[in-house]
């Protein structure tokens, strides 16, 4: 299978992730969209790594996974704090900061 297909797939995944951020009101789902975008990048990295016939890209994917994990921790922490304060995780609700 041509690795370029994986790149295309990665792009589609990236777009889906972005769409999730744009469309979903639920903070967790939106956040998952971001994670999907990161993983799309991972897929692209791995695919390119394969195309170039070296492992740099794959190593990088590990870095990204680690960082993404840290991001999840922080992100969920914030979302939980918001939930505790407001009893909701709708992204549209906290909109006092504007203008």
């Amino acid at each position: 299978m041509d690795p370029i297909n994986f790149v295309i797939l990665a792009s589609i995944l990236f777009a889906i992730g972005a769409a999730a951020v744009l469309l979903r009101r639920n903070a967790i789902i939106a956040f998952m969209g971001v994670e999907l975008m990161l993983n799309a990048a991972n897929l692209a990295l791995v695919a390119f790594s394969r195309m170039h016939g070296e492992i740099d890209g794959q190593i990088m994917a590990f870095f990204v996974l680690t960082v993404a994990a840290a991001e999840v921790v922080v992100g969920l922490g914030i979302i939980i704090a918001v939930f505790r304060a407001r009893q909701t995780i709708s992204l549209d609700e906290p909109a006092e900061l504007k203008g």
Partner: peptide
């Protein structure tokens, strides 16, 4: 306000990090 700011900052920040990574 603090929470709201953090949430927005985080979500958009993560979003832009993903763009950068991609």
């Amino acid at each position: 306000l603090s929470h709201e700011g953090a949430l927005k900052y985080f979500l958009l920040g993560a979003f832009s990090s993903a763009i950068l990574l991609f």
